[in-house]
Amino acid sequence: MSETGKQRVLILGGRSDIGLAIARRFAADGHPITLAARNAQTLEDDKADIALRNAVEVSVEELDVLDTEAMAAFVAKGAAPPGIVVSVIGVMGDQHENQRVAEQAALVMRTNYEAPALALGLYAELMEAAGEGVLVGVSSVAGDRGRGSNYVYGSAKAGFTAYLSGLRNRLSGKGVHVVTVKPGFVATRMTDGMDLPQRLVAQPEEVAEAIWHAVEKRRDVVYVKPVWRWIMGIIGMLPERVFKKTSL
């Protein structure tokens, strides 16, 4: 808790455009912030900016989520868990490369499923013991159904979505809330230069706003742009016999 009575928000993968937007949104609401990422020292300018604008305390922490041992130590080291932990960990990779190069596919799978699931799982233990806390996992609409153009990434996100669902189920009634966020396309470094239908593209600030709102209102599963719920609903209902012939 800070002077304003707001809980600390820990952002795993804090360097990403979405991660920084989330930090700014919660800081604007008076929450102290911790950004955890690799090469944390390069986040000093962002730390200064968020602290100066919002008059909140901001810290940056070195964290390589793919180093399981180091990550477990990172989670264990604090006296008490942060009130809110958000995972923005993820990497898209290139589907063609993911198909051909096993190491590349493994990196995508580990980054989108293993690392965020393990991290939030460890924080869930601490929060359950404390009897309170909020966990937010940024997953993806790509996890709603495996598509030929994106299934390595999509399957990892599907795993993460399932993990969050299970976590929410298990922790229901124990004071710990779990939010699953499915942003759809977002205008970030990841999608720079991609030719996307602009009406389906959210800005990082919209994702941050949706997450802030979901935490405040204790929402379970959030699509940032509501149209995605319909799109994925329809894609999900297509019979496999039809779906397999599409190019989505």
Partner: peptide, 14 residues
Amino acid sequence: RTLDMGRMNRMLAF
């Protein structure tokens, strides 16, 4: 070429 500087908008020290 035009460089939209809108993303370089951090306040660093006061």
